[in-house]
Design a protein around this nucleic acid. Structure first.
Lengths: 180, 180
DNA sequence: GTCTATAGGCAGATAGAC
DNA sequence: GTCTATCTGCCTATAGAC
């Protein structure tokens, strides 16, 4: 159920799907869905928490399995690429667009997701700066924000285009600006 | 009426407002709105066309009044900053997030808007490359896509944060990557 | 151009049986 | 946990008077 809802949000947005859509795909009724999540707000919160947790695990795996700041950044971009390959937007990216219409708990969860990503990015950039493999102009925080923004924006725009490679070229161009 | 609708879309998204919202703000009835635009799809199309036309004029003014590629890019970023200062997202940026739910004519208009922006950006970058004031890695098209994506993404993310300066620092960082 | 009135449908949500 | 049945409210949209 969360899988179906997640996909619907990532493709159509939080205001672009209904309980009826989920119910139809699962072959159950809307009423059954309300048993698991009393309201759409609670469902939304659960979706973000699960997504953020999974994302956090992926970042931990990168830290554990991949050596070298640039390789870590490439792996980070690969996470986004995988999401996009299914026609999906980043869950929190699409929720950011609908931010003004979201209930408070969802807003806070979205904000936390971005903050966590920037913290991780800043650590990788710091590592790259220390070993000389990356050249960062300005502060680490600003550079992290720029990368996160650039990737979210590239996902957003590339979904309006019919060129699937578009995201990858934009993302690579972004990372290449960090090459000494 | 278009002004009110435009603001509602930019703040809440196309699926996040209704005819009733516009009617309430204008002090008229929903039925009156249908006289001007038979359906929401037609209203949406009109909004994009007007927005794109206004944007195109702003780009023409930049070309006419501002000398130097970097100064032109700064002026380009300033357009985005002004939009964001009112808590709004770029109209086509927020529509890109809802792309899967949009009627075909709106999709095409959004796609054209981005293409026009990239064409303009590529011309400015080309000028900067020719006079040596900008250093572009990779193709002009790729660099243009990166800038457009970066700005749209920075708008998207900065609206989830309470730091108003966030967009500007990300945008400046993006442009600074083009400094020789 | 704007109104009243209303249609028809779908939204999120609840009660209560099984 | 899932169902049927139902509610209330809002959605887009239309007909027809002024």
């Amino acid at each position: 159920m969360l899988d179906v809802a997640e996909r619907l949000v990532q493709v159509r947005g939080f205001n672009g799907f209904s309980y009826a859509d989920i119910a139809r795909e699962l072959g159950i009724t809307k009423a059954s869905l309300h048993y698991h999540f009393p309201g759409k707000a609670e469902l939304g919160e659960a979706l973000i928490h699960r997504y953020a947790a999974r994302f956090g695990e992926a970042l931990t795996e990168i830290d554990r399995d991949i050596a070298g700041p640039r390789a870590k950044l490439d792996a980070y971009v690969a996470i986004y690429s995988n999401v996009l390959s299914e026609g999906r937007m980043c869950l929190c990216g699409i929720l950011a667009a609908e931010y003004a219409t979201l209930p408070d708990p969802m807003r806070e969860a979205v904000t936390r997701f971005f903050a966590a990503n920037e913290t991780w990015l800043a650590a990788v950039l710091s590592e790259g700066q220390a070993d000389g493999s990356l050249a960062i102009r300005g502060s680490l925080v600003d550079a992290s924000e720029m990368i996160l923004s650039g990737l979210e924006g590239a996902m957003l725009i590339s979904r309006t285009s019919d060129e699937p490679a578009r995201f990858s070229t934009a993302a690579q161009g972004l990372l290449d600006t960090l090459t000494p």
